[in-house]
Amino acid sequence: MSVDAATVKRVAHLARIAVSDEDVPKLQSELNAILAFVEQLSEVNVDGVEPMTSVLPMAMKKRQDVVTDGEIVEKIIANAPASQDNYFLVPKVIE
């Protein structure tokens, strides 16, 4: 399978990465090189094979449903590009 210019733009939008029109051809050829490389997998017989979900058998640990952390609002907003009154500030999302 290979991607066309429109698909490159669609995928860029899905990935939330702005891509300029000049950049599309180069990205398209790079993505197609990678997709051509992974194409080899289609020759493997995977009938009846379970997809891997965990690399090693391991029982999921459970813990008590109790609060173990918190009251660290200053730490949480310390790296925010914009914040006010302990809230993260973003552009308006609801008209």
Partner: peptide, 22 residues
Amino acid sequence: GVRYGLRVPGKDIVDMYEKTRA
């Protein structure tokens, strides 16, 4: 671009995400 790291302003939030990540 919301909780930490670089933020590049945009005309709306999706534009901000896309420009930030670009």
